[in-house]
Computed example of a mutant assay.
Amino acid sequence: MIRLIVVDDHAVVRSGLVSLLNGKNGIQVVGEAADGDEAILKVNELHPDVVLMDLSMPHGKDGLTATGELKKQHPSVAVLVLTMHDDEEYLFRAIHAGASGYILKSAPHEELVTAIGLIAAGQAYLNPSAIKRLMSDYLDKFKLGEHGGTYESLSDREKEILVKVAQGYSNKEIAEQLIISVKTVESHKSNLMEKLGLKTRPDLVKFAMKKGLLNFE
């Protein structure tokens, strides 16, 4: 039996998911939550195996924040992100927060049931379009690595800022942590991205992942 909690800010969506999933392939929906704060309370109370987590919830904690807190408090609970965001940045932020899977709301019902079963068994799940995109991006970065700059070419400060940007911190937060100005952070970030041949934050996150600079535990 897979104990599941469904988290989504829309009651109609939650009701539909409960009707769809309860009793399918050993899934038992033991609770629902409308935001991240309620999700954490429900997990503490009901001890599920899997949490099906929406990302965009305007009230209370959002799905990314809740996922990070849940994984710190309950490392054994698997989180499957169910979202409308077919976007690389959301994908990497969800993985960094500790999610075991990422699936789109447009996915077939059978795919959702399969994904829940896989992550309940300790495996990971990414929707096929995300896998295809990641493979393409990896090949692009592999080719870039043959001609672009290397991690070793960065200064110690640039390496430090690279990791913090990849972890999702804003320029202001990084400046406060390192006790430097926001302008200095922006300058270092611009320099390191130019050295590495990177254009966007998702590119930077993928580079950090490839180099093993991010801790996903």
Results as ranks from 00 to 15, higher is better:
residue 162 L to E: 05
residue 156 D to L: 12
residue 118 L to T: 09
residue 161 I to L: 01
residue 157 R to Q: 11
residue 154 L to P: 02
residue 190 S to T: 04
residue 159 K to P: 02
residue 134 L to P: 06
residue 172 K to W: 12
residue 131 I to H: 15
residue 180 I to A: 00
residue 118 L to H: 14
residue 147 H to G: 12
residue 143 K to D: 07
residue 173 E to Q: 10
residue 130 A to N: 08
residue 150 T to C: 05
residue 132 K to Q: 09
residue 152 E to V: 03
residue 131 I to L: 10
residue 183 K to D: 11
residue 181 S to F: 08
residue 120 A to I: 01
residue 114 T to K: 13
residue 122 G to I: 08
residue 167 Q to T: 04
residue 152 E to F: 07
residue 121 A to S: 07
residue 145 G to F: 00
residue 180 I to Q: 00
residue 165 V to I: 04
residue 128 P to R: 01
residue 186 E to I: 07
residue 173 E to W: 07
residue 165 V to H: 07
residue 145 G to T: 00
residue 171 N to Y: 11
residue 140 D to Q: 09
residue 173 E to H: 14
residue 141 K to G: 04
residue 127 N to Q: 14
residue 187 S to E: 13
residue 143 K to G: 09
residue 148 G to R: 08
residue 189 K to C: 02
residue 137 D to Q: 08
residue 112 L to T: 06
residue 177 Q to G: 08
residue 126 L to V: 03
residue 130 A to T: 14
residue 184 T to S: 05
residue 170 S to C: 03
residue 132 K to L: 08
residue 185 V to Y: 05
residue 155 S to K: 10
residue 120 A to E: 07
residue 111 E to W: 06
residue 148 G to H: 08
residue 177 Q to I: 13
residue 181 S to I: 00
residue 113 V to T: 02
residue 147 H to M: 13
residue 169 Y to N: 15
residue 125 Y to S: 05
residue 181 S to M: 00
residue 147 H to E: 12
residue 170 S to A: 07
residue 172 K to Q: 14
residue 131 I to C: 10
residue 175 A to K: 06
residue 141 K to L: 03
residue 150 T to S: 08
residue 175 A to V: 00
residue 146 E to K: 14
residue 156 D to I: 14
residue 182 V to H: 12
residue 145 G to Q: 00
residue 141 K to T: 14
residue 139 L to P: 03
residue 150 T to Q: 14
residue 145 G to A: 01
residue 168 G to A: 01
residue 166 A to C: 01
residue 118 L to D: 10
residue 192 L to H: 04
residue 141 K to H: 11
residue 168 G to P: 03
residue 131 I to V: 12
residue 119 I to H: 08
residue 147 H to I: 11
residue 167 Q to Y: 08
residue 119 I to K: 03
residue 156 D to P: 11
residue 140 D to K: 12
residue 161 I to E: 00
residue 135 M to C: 11
residue 178 L to E: 15
residue 120 A to F: 09
residue 146 E to L: 15
residue 122 G to Q: 12
residue 122 G to M: 03
residue 178 L to H: 01
residue 181 S to W: 10
residue 177 Q to R: 13
residue 167 Q to W: 01
residue 147 H to R: 14
residue 150 T to H: 10
residue 156 D to R: 15
residue 140 D to M: 14
residue 129 S to Q: 10
residue 119 I to E: 05
residue 113 V to D: 02
residue 159 K to S: 09
residue 127 N to S: 15
residue 167 Q to P: 01
residue 146 E to F: 09
residue 154 L to I: 00
residue 176 E to V: 09
residue 182 V to T: 10
residue 112 L to V: 04
residue 149 G to R: 01
residue 111 E to T: 12
residue 119 I to Y: 09
residue 176 E to P: 09
residue 159 K to E: 05
residue 178 L to D: 03
residue 139 L to C: 11
residue 117 G to F: 03
residue 170 S to M: 01
residue 135 M to G: 12
residue 122 G to C: 06
residue 129 S to P: 05
residue 140 D to F: 14
residue 172 K to V: 12
